[in-house]
Simulated scan of single mutants.
Amino acid sequence: MVAELAADAPLAGAVRTPLDLWSLRQVYVGTGADPGKLTDRSRFPAAADITRHLLDHLVGALLGTSPPGRRCWDAEDAARWLSWPVHQFRHAEVHDHLARAEVVSGADRSPNPLP
């Protein structure tokens, strides 16, 4: 696995930021799963594929490691709940509305013209 951390390997590109490393730790170390499959270049040909895989499994890993005595949500329910706003934003064309709001709020903050 160390060889896969070479500069041109997908795994090396997928763990360059603290968030990426934290995700890897939560999904694999925290659950006791074997991260060796991340070195399979046929399954993960690019760093983005590894990142997507880690993010896809992050909610389940976090919910599956709740401390004793704390309520544990079902991972599938939580993933569905967390994905709902994303779908709403995509379908409501929120990007256009946000862009217009930024232009308007930016205009409000412009300096007053000199008398």
Rank of each mutant, 00 (worst) to 15 (best):
D8N: 00
V86W: 03
D96P: 06
A12G: 07
G32V: 14
R100K: 13
G69R: 01
D74S: 06
R25I: 15
H57D: 04
P45K: 04
H87G: 15
D8T: 08
D34C: 09
V15A: 03
A9F: 00
D34Y: 04
P10C: 05
H53Q: 09
P45D: 00
H53S: 10
R52S: 03
S23W: 02
G13T: 05
F44L: 06
F44R: 01
H95S: 02
A48F: 00
R71I: 13
L38Q: 12
W22G: 09
A46W: 00
V86I: 05
A79T: 10
A33R: 13
S42N: 09
A75P: 12
D8M: 01
V29K: 09
V86T: 11
D56S: 15
V27L: 04
A47G: 11
A33G: 04
D56C: 03
D56N: 09
G32S: 08
C72F: 00
C72R: 08
G64A: 02
V29S: 06
A33D: 06
R100D: 12
D74E: 02
A33S: 11
R100W: 06
L21C: 11
L82F: 09
A12N: 07
A48H: 05
T65L: 08
T39H: 06
L62I: 14
H57M: 05
L38S: 15
H53W: 05
L63W: 03
G36T: 07
H95A: 13
T51K: 11
A46G: 08
A7H: 09
A14S: 06
A92W: 05
A48P: 02
K37I: 13
G30I: 04
H57R: 14
D34T: 09
S42F: 00
L54I: 10
L63R: 07
D77F: 07
D56A: 14
R90Y: 02
A6F: 00
A99P: 10
T65V: 12
L19P: 11
L5Q: 01
T39A: 10
W73D: 14
R52H: 06
C72G: 14
G69M: 03
L62V: 12
P68K: 07
R100S: 09
T31A: 01
